[in-house]
């Protein structure tokens, strides 16, 4: 029958069309090393007048999601001491690990580290570095402890492109971590 032939022809052609140009999206999956992550944040406290450095880290090797953070140390300090505080940010999802601290240093006029202890009596922080506009950066600084006690130390990296004015308000958080703080 003429019509049946026409129908068959159309269906066959239609089916053929639906499979042409098929591409496998799987071939295109590749590891992307351009993507920036911060997977580890390390606070390095060096007691003044000594070379005793203690490090406290937050590590989430695969970034947000996936596996849970593997390390989140309690910052343990001695009372009535002055420390030099340096911070290191790494992206360890890449090989070799990329050093985000250096990138922050290069764009220091867009970044501000903020260290906030609660209660505020536990620790006093003073910036030890300045950017081109004479605002603090916080890659290095001084932390002075007083009496013993426990609380929190909030560490923020504020990303403030074009709006940095020395205060934490502008911009948004690139890092926002609350370490447990123990001064004893």
């Amino acid at each position: 029958m003429k019509m049946t032939r026409k129908i068959t022809w159309m269906i066959l052609l239609a089916a053929a069309m639906s499979f042409t140009q098929c591409k496998d999206a799987g071939d295109d999956v590749q590891i992307d090393d351009e993507n920036e992550l911060i997977t580890s944040v390390t606070l390095k406290f060096t007691e003044e007048g000594t070379t005793n450095t203690t490090s406290f880290s937050y590590k989430d090797a695969d970034g947000d999601g996936g596996n849970a953070p593997t390390q989140f140390d309690t910052v343990a300090l001695k009372p009535n001491k002055t420390y030099t505080l340096a911070i290191e940010l790494l992206d360890e999802s890449k090989t070799p690990a990329s050093n985000i601290t250096e990138e922050v240093a290069e764009e220091s006029d867009e970044h501000l580290f903020v260290y906030t202890p609660t209660p505020s009596t536990l620790l006093t922080y003073t910036y030890g570095d300045k950017d081109a506009n004479n605002y603090g950066i916080g890659l290095t600084g001084k932390a002075v402890t007083t009496t013993a006690g426990t609380g929190k130390l909030k560490v923020q990296l504020r990303h403030q492109p074009g709006s940095k004015n020395g205060t934490p308000s502008p911009g948004s958080d690139d890092v926002n971590l609350e370490f447990n703080l123990k001064v004893q």
Binding site: A14, A15, F19, C22, A25, G26, V29, N35
Partner: peptide, 21 residues
């Protein structure tokens, strides 16, 4: 009627959704 759909997605950048067919 008969309808067919074939689709593939290629994604690049910050991981969000996977590639798929």
């Amino acid at each position: 009627g008969i309808s067919t759909l074939y689709q593939y997605n290629l994604m690049d950048g910050r991981p969000l959704i996977p590639n798929f067919n």
